[in-house]
Design a protein around this nucleic acid. Structure first.
Lengths: 148, 148
DNA sequence: CTTGATGCAAAGGATTTGCACAAAT
DNA sequence: ATTTGTGCAAATCCTTTGCATCAAG
């Protein structure tokens, strides 16, 4: 079994849940695709393997709870992305208003700047920050070019 | 009529829509409450004045479209807050995982820092950023104290 | 009058839940 | 055997829509 799958299997079992065939199939799809997928999209990929929609929902919310995936909500729909192996508490997404595509913004320097600002917020407001979601909305590179 | 209401009335009419009693009532509730309200909460405040739920939804999406309110989505539900008179493209919200309350974080210095980072992202990725939503998740002041 | 806005109820889409059955320990 | 997970269908929640009616210009 793949290293990633194995270590996540261990995590799931350590938390007291069974690592079933369904969880494995869904996990493998998440690893394979490495973008944000919603429950319906994942269901479409796995339904031929006799996995029900409810199981997809239940599995994703379990994965989310124990920190295997990160959930982001776009226009009322939950999307999930693998969190392990990039376990920063920071997620910057860019959504294009023209083509609706969602781009990940990832840059070490930016991440550092954001984390610094967060520490400032923690101190000023006496809160603990566990997780940071940043959603930027605008026009993407492609659409900018297409509208010249 | 209140200054705020009047200038928003003008905006609505300039866009070619009628400033009806329903729109006024909903607008006044938004001005009064100055927090994030979802459609249901607004409906509860105005239903006694014979305003239907569909009208609340239609009004809020119109308001959102012409930039009177800003929509933020929390756990699959849309919340709205007045955007006028604070027309920064930046919104920092903090959600507490214990009590689920949502706090606005507003600080000029922070805002400047964020806007600077955004300019960096725009340059590096060749995108235009219109709007920035930042959602911080963690433990709030009150809940920190309550769990000592 | 004519057009756009509203209220209601019905429809829609995403997600959750109840329950009987299957799988695992 | 006992517990946990699954599949299906029904239920639920939020939101949108169709349509007859109302209101404003």
């Amino acid at each position: 079994m793949d290293d990633k799958v194995l270590s996540i299997k261990n995590l799931i079992e350590r938390k007291g849940y069974k690592f079933t065939k369904q969880k494995r199939v869904i996990l493998e799809e998440l690893i394979k695709s490495n973008t944000h997928l919603n429950s319906k999209q994942i269901y479409d990929k796995v339904k031929d393997r006799k996995i029900g929609l409810a199981t997809v929902y239940r599995t994703l919310s379990l994965f989310s709870e124990i920190g295997i995936v990160k959930e982001i909500n776009i226009d009322g729909v939950s999307y999930y992305e693998l969190k392990m192996y990039s376990k920063k508490p920071l997620h910057i997404h860019f959504q294009c208003v023209k083509c609706n595509s969602i781009i990940d913004i990832d840059d070490n320097n930016l991440n550092l700047q954001y984390l610094k600002i967060c520490r400032e917020i923690e101190n000023k407001n006496n809160v603990d920050i566990y997780d940071i979601d940043i959603m930027l909305v605008g026009i993407c590179d492609k659409c900018k070019k297409a509208y010249c």
